[in-house]
């Protein structure tokens, strides 16, 4: 395919893995596979635009996950503001929609670093070391932010609501 030949060096080879990561985190946040695909494609397009800088970096997966999660969170916010319930309902149950909206709301209230760590670790599926590389912080810092972020989410969402519940259906 011509578009494949236009891709910068290494992008084609890394595309599948990176797109899969981006898609999964977007799907977990959005619940909608179509929108998640669009969000993942947008995240990959941004990776393509910055490929010269991130291609050889060990944190490139974390970078893509972070971009995808931010795009997904923004999409949820836009839809909730616009009242686009129909799009939010696509392919998911009402309860899941409510849970996701509550999760996004709780995530948005977290400090930026805690939100990034929680999303990358639990929704993006990155290891603590990968999160540390992506965020350019130490692993201990990632653990601290993760612990505080989860504690805040539990207090905000209630003790019965666990992160595993949100991502279980993906």
């Amino acid at each position: 395919m011509s578009s494949t030949t236009l891709a910068p060096e290494g992008f084609d080879e890394a595309f599948d893995a990176l797109f899969g990561r981006a898609y999964r985190v977007a799907r977990r946040i959005l619940g909608d596979p179509t929108t998640a695909e669009d969000v993942a494609a947008e995240a990959m397009a941004r990776a393509y635009a910055h490929w010269g800088k991130i291609a050889l970096q060990p944190w490139r997966e974390g970078w893509v996950v972070r971009v995808a999660s931010n795009l997904a969170l923004d999409t949820v916010k836009k839809r909730s503001w616009l009242g686009d319930a129909e799009a939010m309902d696509a392919g998911v149950e009402d309860d899941d929609v409510a849970v996701r909206l509550a999760l996004v709301e709780a995530l948005s209230r977290l400090p930026r670093r805690q939100r990034e760590v929680v999303v990358m670790r639990h929704l993006g599926g990155l290891s603590e070391a990968e999160c540390a590389e992506a965020l350019k912080v130490s692993t201990g810092s990632v653990k601290t932010h993760l612990h505080r972020g989860l504690a805040s989410l539990r207090s905000g969402l209630g003790p019965a609501m666990q992160m595993e519940e949100v991502s279980a259906d993906v």
Binding site: T4, A41, R46, Y48
Partner: peptide
């Protein structure tokens, strides 16, 4: 991929 390359 084509879409991503075009957008990128």
């Amino acid at each position: 991929l084509a879409r991503v390359v075009a957008r990128g």
